[in-house]
Design a protein around this nucleic acid. Sequence first.
RNA 1: GCACCCGUAGCUUAAUGGAUAUAGCAGUGGCCUUCGGAGCCAAAGGUUGGGGGUUCGAGUCCCUCCGGGUGCACCA
Length: 563
Amino acid sequence: MKEKLQNTIEKALESLSVEAVDFVVEHPAEVAHGDYATNVALVAAKNLGENPRELAEKIMKAVVLQDLPEVEKVTIAGPGFLNFTLSRDFYTAKTELINTVDGEWGKNNEYLGKKVLVEYTDPNPFKEFHIGHMFTNAVGESLARLFEMAGAEVKRLNYQGDVGMHVASAIWGMQQMGLTADDKFTPQELGQAYAKGATALKEDKDSKKEIELINQKLYKHTEYDDAVNLLYEKGREVSLAYFEQIYKMLGTKFDEYFFESEVSSRGVEVVLNNTDVFTESDGAWVFKGEEYGLHTRVFINSLGIPTYEAKELALAKMKQERCGDFDLSIISTANEINEYFKVLLQAMSLIYPELAQKTEHVGHGMVRLPEGKMSSRTGDVIGAMDFIGEVKKNVETRVKESGKEIDEEVIEKVAIGAIKYEVLKGSIFQDSVFDKAGALSFEGNSGPYLQYTYARIQSVAKKAESAGVIPSLDNTPEDIYGVERILYRFPEVVEEAVKERLPHKVSVFLSQLANEYNSFYATEKIAESSDEYAPYKLALSLAVAETLKKGLWTLGIEAPEKM
RNA sequence: GCACCCGUAGCUUAAUGGAUAUAGCAGUGGCCUUCGGAGCCAAAGGUUGGGGGUUCGAGUCCCUCCGGGUGCACCA
């Protein structure tokens, strides 16, 4: 509809011989101002030096209403806005469409036929999977789903750091704790081992030497140490299995896993094969970013070990080999590495120009604890599992209080929904202080509020069915319900969200939709066979439920039928 | 010090240069003889960090100051 209005207005400008201008068609904040509004007269009047209201008058007359049967009236308001009000038929048709398109509602063609790779989460084995990883996972998963809504074939990728000093630190810590490969140890114990090792690395010289030796053994295999290798294998296995458990809970399934251990040597090769791009400096290979307004970064250190940057070059190539040709490669991480990525992409553009062009880094905001930045070294983190458990307990208490039956599966969906929504309800680009109370609350603008609204519609639909109310569009009230004025915008919102990489556009929409629906629900009878509009209200309710479900899905949140 | 990001109600937060700046939480007052109260309605809460500028129009763009975050050579 939005595009249709834009096209019609452009035609009207043409017929008036007014030069094309950059105008917008948007939803006015006030319902009284209609369903769509445009500032075209204001913008064009500026160029022409005319009175905006007079020009608006002319444009209004030139807008051929026959072309727009959905528009009931056009008015001029304020400084010269053109306001369009849609007709009852338009809304009725939307309700019908939503209930009949079967899974297609909300989709767009922005990335139709394109292959999009989305790399996200990227936890390090041997370190604790904390709420920061949950944050980045929620962001990446919703980006992946938004691209799917836009018609893309999406590959979900996960890149994990299974080599390096953090691993050596963990192994050293395990040795100190007396753990052997034959022991059964937990991911939590691994986290403790890492914290122990990382602290020792920083504070004790002798320990540092020992850890460096372990790193050499693991990395270069110059010296074979069975005990170390076995600890490594076991630790990696425990860690990765634990991550899978979390992914399952979070509703994420990766298509491909990449490990630093696979890309290290290749990273070195790439750099050494491109000595025209990189320069040797103090025994290290660096990229001089200054020529491009950036800064210098080390790609291979003086010990000959590749850094993150070099590995990333190899990774880019490996993604293409494993996933085939693609159109876009998104790498979603916290914004603390934004500057590195600029340098990295610059270097990549000189080596793999075609890859660099298709690669996009989405640096989202960081989660901070009220006390400050999280650090797995000092143990100053909130573990993902611990936190999920805490939220689940809260949900369970809530269910018990209301005297409903306990359903483990539903409790988990609600808990995960609460956490994910808390992350995705605001802009992903903004840093945020982790609001524990917010994620633990189920009222107002929250995931459970949306899930509740969905479940409530399922319940009333069942009730309506037994009351003999059958959904129908035959008899519609003259007035448009507030919820209808929001509902049809869903596809526009999804398209905007994917274009701008902003999942919260969907969250804001859903919250508004649920609020409008709940107001409607409070005043209108649906499961009431004597009400002449009940069949339409039921059809509308089902359309809202479908939209809530689809919208929550794009955020990676499930909508249970009962809760 | 340099670079990038941010500053909106007590807290969290929305707003492709547009109309009276969005919501939620907390606090205040209502709504259970009504289909799910994880709900609904109402009132209250603001000099959009300060000051200049551009524009018919600025939370949004430019300048400047203040405050915060992140990064700045061998960690990722």
